[in-house]
Design a protein around this nucleic acid. Structure first.
Length: 839
DNA sequence: AGCACGCCGACT
DNA sequence: GTCGGCGTGCTC
C-alpha cells in the first residue's frame, strides 16, 4: 500500500494530520481524529488505531482516509494509539466495505464489524472498582450502595452490567455517579486485546549440563532418583544434545514426557526446580505445518482439459469477468478447479475458493490441503476467533496465497487476487441474513473482481436462475459439462406414488413399499443408503386426537417440534423448550399424537423395519460439536453405517463410493413452499441429494416419494433436465416481474404490538407506492411465520427494474422514507429491517 | 450500539 | 422530597 502524499509535499513532523476512521458501530458517517505528530510518519490507510468515542468508550477503528483538513465545527480528539506497523485492511477492502454499505443499505461500521475477526478488534469495557484511598467513615450510604461495595470487595472490579445484576436494577449509572462523587469508587476502561497467540511450553536441558562430562556426572547423581533419571534419559533420547548441542535450543514439548512416555510430572517439576531442566515458551501457529507434498500433476481427462481450456479462453481471450461452469454432479469440476488454481498461483496471484458452510468440513478440504500444502489457508465458521486472526494475518504476510473458506472469507485482506471460485453458486447460505450487512458472497465476489481486476468462476450442477440467465445472455461466460466423469453414470430416478400406495394399503407409516423394498435389496448386497428429509426433530407438531389442538410456541407463531432424544417440545425459531403435554390443554384428552415427519422419526422407524442395520442421523442436532460431523462422515465412509438419515447436510460435498440408493421423503412439502423460488430450490436440492447415489462402478437409484406424481417438475428431475426447469422458471419470473428481471428489496417491520407493526409498514408502504407505483410495491403481508420472539412481523417487497432505473436514487428514496416514518414519535420503537436481494 | 441527560411517576 | 424508569439525542 502506498504512503499517502499531499501534492508531493513530504509529510514533515510539523504537518498536522487528520484521519477519518471507520468505527465498528452502526452509525453512518466516518469520524475525524487528529494524529499526534509522533505518529505522522507511520500512519497509513488501513491501519488500526485506538480512539476514544463518546465520553469514555475506547474503540478500535480503521483508518479510511488520511488528510490535513481540520474539521470545521468541532475539535477533533487525538488518536490514542496506533496498533499496526503495516495496514491490517487493504485499500481495496475499504472500497469494498463502502460499496457494501451503499448497496445493502447499512452502515459501514456494520460491515467492518462482520468483516474483521473480533480478535482484531479491541474495545474497552467500563469497569468500576473501589478506590484504594476510599474513606467510608462519616459517609451516608444507602442499602444499594452498601450492597455494591460488598460485591466490589469480593470481586475487585465489576462491569456496569454485572453491577446492575448484583443490585437487580436496570439502570445503574446514577448510583455509580453518586459513588464517584462520594470518592468511593472509580471507573476505568479495561482494554482487551482479544487475540491470544498460541503458546507451547517447552523443556530443555540447562546450559550447565551440555558438556559430556557434566552430563555423565549428572546421570550418576540421579541414579538415586530413578524417576528423574528416566526423564533425563527420555530427553536425551529424543534430543541427542551430545551429538549436536544446538538441538537443545529447540528442546521438547513439556507435555511430551507425560503424554508419550507416561513419565511423572512431579519428577519433571523437581528437575525444573533444581535447575537441571529449564522451561521456556514459544509462540506457535494454530495451523499445522504441512510438508508440501508434490502431488502427482493433476491428470485431467480429455474432456476436463478441454473444459478448463474453454474457461481460460473465456476469461482471457474473450475478456469475460465471470464464467459459469455448469456441470452435473460427478462431472469432475473439482479437478478443473484445482488445475486452474495451480495455474493462477503459478502466475503469482492469490486465489480464493468459496464453498457453502456445510460442504467445507469435508473431503474436499483434506484433498486440497494435500495438493496445496502450507500455502493454503482455511477460513471456517467453526474456527475459533484466534484461528481466524491467524488466517487473516497469513493472507497479509503472504503465507497463504490460497484460501478455502465460507462466505465471510470474502472479507480477507487479499491485495492481488487472480481468481475467485464460488462453488455451488446457487446455495442460499452464501446470503447472510442476520445481522447486517445482509450480503451475498457470490455477488460480492463479482464486486471484488472489479476492484481487484480478477476473474470469478461460478460452479454448480443446478445454477440459480439468475446466474444461468446472465450466462445465457452473454453477460457471463458459460461452459457446460453434461456427463459424469469416467465411467460413472447418472443415477436412475424413480417416483414412489404415495397416493396409490395409500389406497392399496402397501404404505407403512411414512415409508412406501417401493422405498422399503429397495432399501432391503441394497442392504442385502452390502450397499449403503442415504435418506433425505429436510426437517429435523421427530415430528413437526403434536396434535390432540379429540380436538386437534396443537401446542404452539409461546413466543413465536409456530408449532413446537417434538424431539424424541430429550423427550421435549422445541421451538426452532427462538429455542423455547417445554415438556410434551400429558393431556390436551384445550379439552383435557390424553390422546395426543405426533404428526408429521422429521429425521428422528425416520431413524426411529428404521430400527423397526431393519433391526440389524446400522442407522445414523446427521442433522443440526447430531453435529453440534466440532468433530461430530467429521466423525459421522468417516463412519459412513468406513461402512460402519448402513443407512444415513439426514437433512440438507447429506446433500453437499460428500462423495461416497458405495451409496447405491437415495430416498427422498416429502418432496411435496418442498414444492409447495410459498416462495417464488420454491420450485427452483426443490429441483436443486433433490438433484443434489440424488447426486450422492452411484459412483464409479455402481449405478445409483433415487426414489422420490410424492403424493402427486403428475407434477411437471418431477419429470424434469427424473430426466435431470436442468434447462427445461430453467426455461419454465425464467418464463414465470418474466411474467411476474421477479429476478433476474427485477431487483428485490424487502422491508420487514418488527414490533411487540401487531397493530403498530402493521401500521408502521403500511405508512411506509403508502409513501413508497405514491412515488414508485402500485406495481412495484407488494404488501404489506405477514410472513409465513408472522411472530418471532414475541415480535410481529410484516413484510413489504419492492421490485425495481434492472434497466433504466437509478438504483442508487431509488434506494436513497426508500431509506429516506423509512427514516422519515421512524422519526415520528409513534413509530420510533418499531424496527425496520432492510434486506436487499433477499433469498 | 452505548452512554448521558432530563423528565416524570411511585415510593419513604 | 428522592429514586429509578424510560425516552431522546449525541458520539469526531
Amino acid at each position: 500500500m502506498e504512503k499517502v502524499e499531499f501534492n508531493s509535499e513530504v509529510i514533515s513532523e510539523l504537518t498536522t494530520l487528520f484521519v477519518d476512521v471507520i468505527l465498528p458501530v452502526p452509525i453512518p458517517q466516518l469520524f475525524t481524529y487528529r494524529v499526534p505528530q509522533e505518529m505522522n510518519e507511520q500512519m497509513q490507510v488501513g491501519m488500526r488505531v485506538i480512539v476514544q468515542f463518546g465520553s469514555r468508550k475506547v474503540l478500535t477503528a480503521i483508518v479510511a482516509k488520511l488528510h490535513q483538513k481540520p474539521p470545521q465545527n468541532y475539535q477533533a480528539k487525538y488518536v490514542l494509539e496506533l496498533l499496526d506497523d503495516s495496514p491490517t485492511v487493504t485499500v481495496g477492502q475499504i472500497q469494498l466495505f463502502q460499496w457494501m454499505a451503499d448497496y445493502y443499505m447499512c452502515n459501514i461500521g456494520e460491515v467492518l464489524n462482520i468483516a474483521l475477526p473480533s480478535g482484531l478488534k479491541i474495545s474497552s469495557l467500563s469497569k468500576i472498582q473501589l478506590r484504594p484511598d476510599a474513606v467510608l467513615e462519616g459517609k451516608q450510604l444507602n442499602e444499594k450502595e452498601l450492597r455494591l461495595l460488598d460485591a466490589l470487595q469480593d470481586d475487585a472490579s465489576l462491569t456496569y452490567d454485572e453491577a446492575a445484576e448484583v443490585l437487580g436494577v436496570d439502570n445503574v449509572y446514577h448510583l455509580i455517579k453518586v459513588l464517584i462523587a462520594k470518592e468511593i469508587v472509580l471507573v476505568y476502561e479495561e482494554v482487551r486485546e482479544k487475540y491470544a497467540p498460541k503458546i507451547v511450553k517447552k523443556i530443555r536441558l540447562s546450559r550447565d549440563y551440555l558438556m559430556k562430562t557434566d552430563l555423565e556426572k549428572l546421570s550418576k547423581k540421579l541414579e538415586k532418583t530413578p524417576k528423574q533419571l528416566d526423564i533425563l534419559l527420555a530427553y536425551l533420547r529424543h534430543v541427542p544434545v551430545l551429538r549436536d548441542w544446538t538441538l537443545n535450543e529447540t528442546g521438547i514439548e513439556k507435555d511430551f514426557f507425560h503424554k508419550n512416555e507416561n513419565l511423572s510430572i512431579s519428577s519433571l517439576n523437581t528437575l525444573l526446580k533444581n535447575g537441571i531442566l529449564e522451561e521456556f515458551e514459544i509462540v506457535v501457529s494454530r495451523f499445522a505445518e504441512y510438508a508440501h507434498i508434490d502431488f502427482p500433476k493433476m491428470q485431467l481427462s480429455p474432456k476436463q482439459r478441454e473444459t478448463g481450456e474453454k474457461v481460460m479462453d473465456l476469461f482471457f481471450n474473450q475478456q469475460k469477468e465471470v464464467v459459469l461452469l455448469h456441470g452435473v454432479t460427478g462431472s469432475g469440476k473439482t479437478e478443473i478447479y484445482i488445475d486452474l488454481i495451480q495455474k493462477v498461483l503459478a502466475g503469482g496471484s492469490q486465489v480464493l475458493f468459496l464453498l457453502p458452510e456445510i460442504a467445507l468440513t469435508t473431503q474436499i478440504v483434506a484433498r486440497l490441503q494435500k495438493i496445496f500444502g502450507t500455502q493454503m489457508g482455511v477460513y471456517h465458521s467453526k474456527f475459533s476467533d484466534n484461528e481466524r486472526v491467524e488466517v487473516w494475518r497469513g493472507v497479509l504476510s503472504g503465507r497463504f496465497s490460497f484460501v478455502v473458506g465460507v462466505r465471510s472469507a470474502i472479507f480477507l485482506p487479499f491485495d492481488n487476487l487472480g481468481l475467485i471460485i464460488v462453488d455451488e453458486e446457487h446455495e442460499p447460505s452464501y446470503k447472510q441474513y442476520e445481522p447486517a450487512p445482509r450480503y451475498h458472497a457470490r455477488d460480492m465476489a463479482m464486486v471484488m473482481a472489479r476492484i481487484q481486476n480478477c476473474k470469478v468462476l461460478l460452479g454448480s450442477a443446478t445454477p440459480s436462475t439468475e446466474t444461468f440467465y446472465h450466462a445465457k445472455m452473454g453477460k457471463f461466460g458459460l461452459v457446460q459439462l453434461k456427463e459424469r466423469f469416467g465411467d460413472a453414470e447418472l443415477p436412475e430416478i424413480v417416483l414412489a406414488d404415495l397416493k396409490t400406495e395409500r389406497k392399496e394399503k402397501t404404505i407403512k407409516g411414512h415409508f412406501s413399499a417401493a422405498l422399503l423394498d429397495e432399501i432391503k435389496i441394497k442392504l442385502d448386497s452390502q450397499e449403503q443408503v442415504i435418506l433425505f428429509q429436510n426437517r429435523r426433530g421427530y415430528s413437526p407438531y403434536m396434535s390432540c386426537r379429540q380436538c386437534n389442538t396443537i401446542p404452539h410456541c409461546p413466543n413465536c407463531a409456530v408449532s413446537l417440534t417434538y424431539h424424541l432424544s430429550n423427550h421435549e417440545l422445541r421451538c426452532h425459531y427462538c429455542g423455547h423448550i417445554e415438556p410434551p403435554p400429558k393431556k390436551c390443554v384445550a379439552c383435557g384428552s390424553t390422546k395426543i399424537e405426533t404428526v408429521g415427519l422429521g429425521t428422528e422419526k425416520i431413524e426411529d422407524d428404521l430400527k423397526v423395519y431393519f433391526p440389524n442395520a446400522n442407522v445414523q442421523r446427521m442433522d443440526l442436532d447430531t453435529t453440534r460439536t466440532k468433530n461430530s460431523y467429521q466423525q459421522i462422515i468417516s463412519d459412513f465412509e468406513n461402512h460402519n453405517i448402513d443407512i444415513l438419515v439426514g437433512t440438507q447436510m447429506v446433500s453437499k460435498g460428500l462423495d461416497f463410493d458405495n451409496v447405491s440408493l437415495v430416498g427422498i421423503f416429502d418432496a411435496d412439502r418442498m414444492l409447495n413452499f410459498p416462495d417464488f423460488r420454491a420450485t427452483e430450490r426443490a429441483f436443486q436440492i433433490m438433484l443434489q441429494v440424488s447426486g450422492r447415489a452411484g459412483r464409479k462402478h455402481i449405478k445409483g437409484k433415487v426414489i422420490i416419494q410424492t403424493a402427486n406424481i403428475e407434477q411437471e417438475i418431477l419429470g424434469k428431475i427424473i430426466r435431470n433436465d436442468y434447462e427445461a426447469m430453467y426455461l419454465s422458471e425464467i418464463e414465470d419470473r418474466a411474467y411476474f416481474f421477479y429476478p433476474p428481471f427485477t431487483r428485490l428489496i424487502r422491508l420487514t417491520a418488527k414490533h411487540l404490538e401487531r397493530a403498530l407493526s402493521l401500521e408502521t409498514i403500511q405508512v411506509i408502504t403508502d409513501k413508497l407506492v405514491a412515488k414508485l407505483g402500485k406495481a412495484r410495491v407488494l404488501g404489506p403481508q405477514a410472513p409465513l411465520v408472522h411472530k418471532i420472539r414475541n415480535k410481529y412481523l410484516y413484510n413489504v417487497l419492492i421490485k425495481i427494474e434492472r434497466e433504466n432505473v437509478d438504483l442508487k436514487a431509488t434506494k436513497a428514496f426508500i431509506q429516506s422514507q423509512i427514516e422519515e416514518v421512524l422519526s415520528e414519535k409513534k413509530y420510533k420503537q418499531v424496527q425496520v429491517v432492510v434486506d436487499v436481494d433477499p433469498v
